[in-house]
């Protein structure tokens, strides 16, 4: 089965080609194969497959990748709205949680 696409043109993922050294780390950690290597540098090939997990940015030694990462979880966002905090998948102590 092919990959799922969620909403298009909303993802905050950005890559600075100036800083990229083509180490391929982002290709390794990305669970949705968003990146490809072109002319020895990483490029964002499939932006809309990105789920903003943040693994690429976290493992980019050069700091070339930025993304507002977080959980794409309605219950988590709702929690944040109710408590006035950032979206969080901490559903409180003892509760059911991911």
């Amino acid at each position: 089965m092919s990959r799922f696409t969620y909403l298009t043109d909303v993802v905050t993922l950005k890559l600075d080609p100036e800083k990229c050294t083509g180490c391929r780390m982002c290709l390794i950690v990305c669970p949705h194969a968003v990146f490809e290597i072109e002319e020895k540098k990483a490029v964002i090939r499939y932006l809309d497959y990105c789920m903003e997990c943040g693994a690429c940015a976290k493992n980019c030694q050069e700091g070339a990748i930025t993304v507002k990462s977080g959980v794409g979880c309605a219950a988590g966002i709702l929690n944040g709205l109710i408590r006035g905090t950032e979206p969080s998948c901490d559903c409180g102590s003892g509760g059911n949680c991911c």
Binding site: V11, K68, I77, L78
Partner: peptide
């Protein structure tokens, strides 16, 4: 179910909600 799915982004779910 976005929370259980493996491909929805925070920005996307916020927009949807």
């Amino acid at each position: 179910f976005t929370g259980s799915s493996t491909f929805t982004s925070l920005s996307g779910v916020q927009k949807e909600m």
